[in-house]
Simulated scan of single mutants.
Amino acid sequence: MRLSRIFARRALFLSVIGAAAVGMSPVSAAPASIEGRWKVDDGTSIVTFYKCGAAICGRIEEFLVAEPKGGARDRKNPDEAKRDRKLKGLRIFWNLTADGDSWEGEGYTPKDGRYFNADLKRAGNKLEVKGCVAIFCRTLTWTRA
């Protein structure tokens, strides 16, 4: 009888400790959604973020400045075969997944033809877009369009 009480107390103690540990485990909230239209920092275009599979992608939706005749092209792309593709509609962010309070994935900037690691964080109607190549990073602030 005494042995069963000891086991019962230990089981109760372990269940209380287990419940406390679960209650103390950090809850990771998903970052604010970045889906929708965003005006880039220099005001030249709108980028739209949308679901693509389990991730988020972003493409150039429209230009707010006049395009050259025939449309703006990806002239600075390091891949020569891609230099004639149109920028309007071009996917420039992909594989963006939630990581803490931001969205991390990959990006491309046609301005200088660079691929980068992307980290995007939304705060209200502002979107902080951080791009890093090796140890060099640059952060821009976009606004909700």
Rank of each mutant, 00 (worst) to 15 (best):
R2M: 06
S4H: 08
I6E: 05
A8F: 08
R9N: 08
R10V: 14
L12G: 02
S15W: 08
V16H: 06
A19T: 11
G23K: 08
S25I: 13
V27R: 12
V27P: 01
S28L: 15
A32V: 11
E35Q: 14
G36V: 07
R37K: 15
W38D: 03
V40A: 03
T44N: 06
T44A: 09
T44W: 08
S45K: 09
I46E: 02
V47S: 01
T48F: 06
K51M: 02
C52A: 14
A54Y: 14
A55C: 07
A55N: 14
I56H: 02
R59C: 02
R59M: 05
I60S: 00
E62L: 09
E62C: 06
L64N: 04
V65P: 01
P68L: 11
P68N: 08
P68G: 05
K69V: 11
K69F: 09
G70T: 10
G71L: 11
G71M: 10
G71Q: 09
R73E: 08
R73A: 12
D79Q: 10
A81K: 15
R83P: 00
D84L: 12
K86F: 08
K86W: 05
L87G: 03
G89W: 10
L90F: 12
R91V: 07
I92Y: 07
F93C: 03
T97Q: 14
A98V: 08
A98F: 12
S102N: 10
W103P: 00
W103Y: 11
W103C: 00
G105H: 07
G107N: 03
T109Y: 13
K111S: 04
K111R: 13
Y115V: 07
N117P: 00
A118F: 05
L120Q: 06
K121Q: 15
A123R: 15
N125E: 15
K126D: 12
L127S: 01
L127G: 00
E128C: 05
V129K: 03
V129F: 09
K130A: 04
V133P: 00
I135H: 03
R138G: 07
R138P: 02
T139A: 09
T141D: 09
W142C: 05
